[in-house]
Design a binder for these strands. Structure first.
Length: 419
RNA sequence: GUGGCUGUAGCUCAGCUGGCAGAGUACUUGAUUGUGGCUCAAGAUGUCGCGGGUUCAAGUCCCGUCAGCCACCCCA
């Protein structure tokens, strides 16, 4: 077989034998966020590239190196969305959701795109689910957003995922801290690895979790963000923690958390599964108090998280957890001969109108092949429709679990079908 | 973007220092005329990822390329 067209690198098809798992996970997620009062928002998968770049206010790799950018027929520059928050904020501003007053609680699920080398748990088109709560700076909301992800993971039965928490502080704190980091590393610059020397110029915070032993040793004594928070930031961070405790959510503080996008302020958090290999972040998020204004709205605080479906599924597989059931047919129609199929089609349609799942395969001709198939697709019953049955109006319904069978008239069959 | 490993039947994989393309499983049919699962028997199945090179001869060696995996980087 010559395969003429192949799937683009780093993407994947979700085939029928997996799609029920996706639907199951989505169902539990929607159930969870609904309990917290969140409503779905759907935005396009492409946006003006500048929404993400914000005139290159964002220096992250996600935006600088990994965006799928393209020009349309009128030479306007768009980008496939690499993340979900900026589009939601754009929609919030554009639709003037601020005018509704109060807190907007939103959730989304959909594909994101990043041009990166594929590996386990990393794809070019991948699926994220997430929530955004825009309009309140109250630390309870930070905790609520964390609680949603926490509740969802627990509900799926996951045990091996840990929550790490940090505070990045406000702009003033961050500036002071970055300066302190540079002051600390600069004199020892000659001992750092090549990557770390660029980090020192570009994003000093990333120095903290370099894995090269020499850098790591230096980082151990580096100043920590927590010590550079001002009074307000510290109070906010402590309040978030007390709400988490009140909701019985386990966490640990990791002062080295750095998020992948530049807009985060105050609370930052990550959910990690350390059994997954290099790509161990299931999801993360934090507060983005300056973003709404950057996108052109009236200054308005927000907090949210996003997480990856693929890594979630890897975690479920790894812990051997339930991932949903495939639909199984209630009835497999065993139809003998084309003449009988006329009646068969009529009966199948009437059963379906009653909500019964009915399957039939016109490729299987012999009765034996049809019975075999009924077994293979895990049907609960086989319904035999042949010339004899049609003539006598007595249709055979065979229970495939206990091998018992009964004869029923057409109307009894349709009106009294009990699963 | 960098480095390493891999690519053979629908699936999982074997195939030695180059010499007829294989197994298990799934599939089809039969044993059983209109009754599935178990068993037994028979049968069908390949651009050996793709392109080039070396050779009398390439799945096997060489080069390139594409894809997957693993790690770096980055992050979901």
């Amino acid at each position: 077989m010559a395969v003429k067209y192949t799937i683009p690198r780093g993407t994947f098809d979700i085939l029928p034998d997996k799609s029920y798992t996706w639907n199951y996970i989505k169902k539990i997620f929607i159930q969870t966020v609904t309990e917290f009062g969140y409503k779905e928002i759907v935005t396009p998968i492409f946006e003006q590239a500048d929404l993400f770049e914000r005139n290159v206010g964002d220096t992250s790799d996600i935006v600088q190196k990994e965006m799928y950018k393209f020009k349309d027929n009128k030479q306007r520059t768009f980008a496939l969305r690499p993340e979900g928050t900026a589009p939601v904020v754009r929609s919030y501003v554009e639709n003037n959701m601020q005018a509704n007053g109060g807190l907007q609680r939103l959730y989304y699920i959909g594909p994101m795109f990043r041009y990166d080398r594929p590996q386990k748990g990393r794809y070019r088109q991948f699926y994220q689910y997430g929530v955004e709560a825009i309009g309140s700076n109250h630390p309870y909301v930070d905790a609520e957003v964390i609680a949603i992800q926490y509740t969802f993971l627990k509900r799926l039965g996951l045990k091996g995922i840990v929550l790490e928490l940090n505070s990045l502080g406000n702009k003033a704190s961050t500036d002071r801290y970055n300066k302190a980091l540079v002051d600390y590393y600069e004199p020892q610059k000659h001992e750092l690895c090549g990557d770390c020397i660029t980090r020192l110029e570009k994003n000093p915070r990333r120095l903290l979790d370099c894995k090269v032993p020499a850098c790591n040793a230096i980082s151990e004594k580096a100043p920590l963000m927590i010590d550079y928070l001002d009074e307000e930031c510290r109070e906010h961070f402590e309040a978030v923690q007390s709400y988490l405790k009140a909701m019985d959510i386990e966490y640990s503080i990791n002062p080295r958390i750095v998020r992948g996008l530049d807009y985060y302020t105050y609370t930052a958090f990550e959910f990690l599964n350390n059994e997954l290999g290099a790509q161990n972040a299931i999801g993360g998020g934090g507060r983005y108090n300056g973003l709404v204004e950057q996108v052109g709205g009236k200054d308005s605080p927000g907090v949210g998280f996003a997480a990856g479906l693929e890594r979630l599924i890897l975690s479920l597989e790894q812990e051997g957890l339930f991932m949903g059931d495939e639909y199984k047919p209630d009835v497999y129609a065993v139809i003998l001969g084309d003449q009988s199929l006329l009646k068969g089609a009529e009966i199948m349609q009437k059963l379906r109108a009653k909500g019964v799942i009915v399957e039939f395969d016109p490729l299987k001709l012999s009765m034996k092949a049809q019975m075999k198939n009924a077994n293979k697709v895990n049907a609960k019953y086989a319904l035999i429709i042949g010339e004899n049955e049609i003539e006598t109006n007595q249709f055979i319904l065979k229970n495939l679990t206990d091998s018992t069978q009964v004869s029923l008239t057409e109307s009894d069959l349709i009106n009294n079908f009990i699963d």
